[in-house]
Every structure is written in C-alpha cells, then in structure tokens.
Amino acid sequence: MLPSVEEFPYAIRVVSEVVSSNGSTSQGSICGSTLAPMDAGVPIKAPVAGISCGLIQDDNGGFTTFIDIQGVEDFHGEMDFKVAGTKKGITAIQMDLKNDGLTMEIIKNALEITGDARIEILDQVMLPCIAAPRSEVSRYAPKMITMHIDPDRIREVIGKGGSVIQKIVADTGAKIDINDDGSIFIAAADATSGEAARKCINDIVFVPEVGKLYYGRVVRLMTFGAFIEIAPGKDGLCHISKLADRRIEKVEDACKVGDMMWVKFMEIDEKGRWNLSHRDAMKEIEEKKAKGEPIQ
C-alpha cells in the first residue's frame, strides 16, 4: 500500500506505542499505522484496517468464531486469527493456534467475518477521521522533490567542475543528487528551498514549445529586431517584421528595453537560434479573447 520511491522519496518510520490493552494490540497498531501516514501526507494507495478472530469448539465438532477478541478470550480460546487488509483484499494474515488444526469451514468463516468487520472499521471508524491522505506533507517535514531531465542536459546542470550545481546548492541550501538516467532528487529543509532549487534546474534545461505563447521581457534591441527573454537567461529574436501587425521603420517604434510582451515561439532554426513573433502572439490572443478562452 506504500507509494513508490519515485512518487514519495522518503524513508518512512512508524512507531506504535501501546500503554494499555485488552485485546489485539497488533491490529490496533495496523489501524493507527494507517491513519498516521495519511495524516502526515503519505500518499498510500488505500487505507488498511486489522481485526482479530477467536475460536471456541465443542466436543461434537461444532465451533463458534468471534471477532475483536479481548485478553481473556485470547487466553482461553483456541486461536487468534489476525487479518489485515483494505476494502478490496487482504494484505496480511498472522495466526496463533492452540489446537491441532483448522478445517476449511472454520477458515472460510473466519475470513468472512473478519472481512465484514474490516470494512466496518474502515467505514465507521477510520475514514470518518480522515478520508484520504493529506495533499502535502507537513510544512515542518523535510521536502523531497523528484524530477527528470534529458540525460544529455546533465552536464549543463552540473557545470564545469561542478560549478553550476554547487552554486545552486549554496544559493538554495538544498541537497541535490543526479542519476545517469536524468533523475534528480532534491532534499531541502523546507518547501521554499526545494522549489528554488527545482526552479534553478528547470531554468537551465528549459526548452520552449513550438507554437506556445510566452510572456517575456525585451532585453536587447538590434536594427533587425528585439531579443526577448522568455525564461531566466533564455532569449530569442523577434524580427522587426514580426514585432507589429504593420510595417515599422525601426525596432524602437514597437518596443524598448524592459518592456514586457507576449510572443509566440515559432521555431529553432538550423543554427539553434530561437525565433519569436509578437505579431502572431497578439493575433492568437485576440482569437482566444473572442472565444472566451484563457491565455496561456
């Protein structure tokens, strides 16, 4: 029921302390050990409950099974049949037996009544307390972030002699591990540090999507067009013919350094240069406004 390492890259340690009991502490621990991770934000696949089943037989072969046995029933009874599971199935079984064995009829009966009881515990006791895992771990918990990049871009994230990744670590306070397959694991004391490190990496490996709109800042003007930064340190050229929906004599007629404007990413040319278009972006924005569609 636990999430994969990729989904939840934390080590999980659950301690169940029982100060007093008159029944199956192990099954109570199962229920508590489901509620605690859910409350902590662990995205378990399904809640698990546990229940114990006892047995008494007579000399004629008749038997009685009963659930949620107390200490005295456990002591005098012939079995302690513990079953844990979700609403869909069983995850664990453990049994203490004092007689010579069980018939299939007893086993079938024990599984049926523990199944009904397990669902009752989930529906009536546990899920009313917390119906699903919290969407995020506590703000006091260390933050673990997993991301994936193109393995060919790993060298850019690391930098010459590790200069880039060392600067990210120094600036954000996060710990970063990179695998050869492009998996990156970020560990930070808080969400702010972790997200700052992720943003630094995303900025380095950022590749714009052809046809997508970006809101960027004019960083440089040339006679033939304007360079517009659409991600930190990443800019492209908007040719003078693409700066307006009309003919302009000079770039300054359309923009100046520091202006923010929408551009559409048109292509990466044969030399690896990014070509942008403000004219096409505004045309698409007007069409979206007319249709009531959001601008993204």
Rank of each mutant, 00 (worst) to 15 (best):
G101H: 07
F224P: 06
E73G: 09
G258K: 04
V48D: 05
D39F: 00
V42N: 08
I106V: 15
I90M: 01
I145Q: 13
S20F: 12
S26Q: 14
T91N: 06
D123Q: 08
F224K: 08
F265I: 04
F75N: 11
D259N: 14
C53G: 04
E252P: 07
K199P: 05
I240Q: 03
E6D: 13
I106S: 02
G236A: 06
E6Y: 07
T114C: 09
A254F: 01
V19A: 15
A231L: 03
I186R: 01
D39M: 07
Q166A: 07
Q124C: 09
S20I: 02
S277P: 12
Q57R: 15
I154T: 10
C53N: 05
A197P: 02
V42P: 01
K82C: 07
M261Q: 12
D152P: 14
I30H: 08
A191T: 15
V125Y: 05
I240K: 06
A46N: 10
E252K: 11
V218E: 07
K242S: 09
V210N: 00
V48T: 10
P43Y: 07
I93G: 04
P133Y: 01
K98D: 03
I149Q: 15
T192P: 11
M104N: 11
I240S: 01
L102V: 01
G211R: 13
P9T: 11
K212C: 11
D171S: 09
A141L: 12
E267S: 14
M261S: 05
T64F: 02
K250R: 10
P142R: 08
T103D: 03
Q94S: 12
R118H: 03
D116M: 09
D181C: 05
F8A: 10
D245H: 15
D269N: 15
I67V: 13
V205W: 03
D116G: 14
F227L: 10
R220L: 15
T114A: 10
V263P: 01
I178V: 14
W274V: 00
P294H: 02
I145D: 09
D123K: 07
V125I: 13
M1T: 08
F206P: 13
I176M: 06
S4T: 15
A197T: 00
R273S: 08
F75I: 12
I285R: 01
N22Q: 10
I149C: 14
E249S: 06
G28F: 13
A92L: 08
D74N: 02
M38F: 04
E195H: 14
A131L: 07
S193T: 04
K288P: 00
P142D: 02
S29V: 02
K242C: 04
T103A: 00
A197R: 03
V205M: 08
G32T: 05
S138Y: 13
R153E: 15
L122H: 06
S193D: 09
E73S: 03
D100L: 10
C31L: 06
I93M: 10
V218Q: 05
F185C: 11
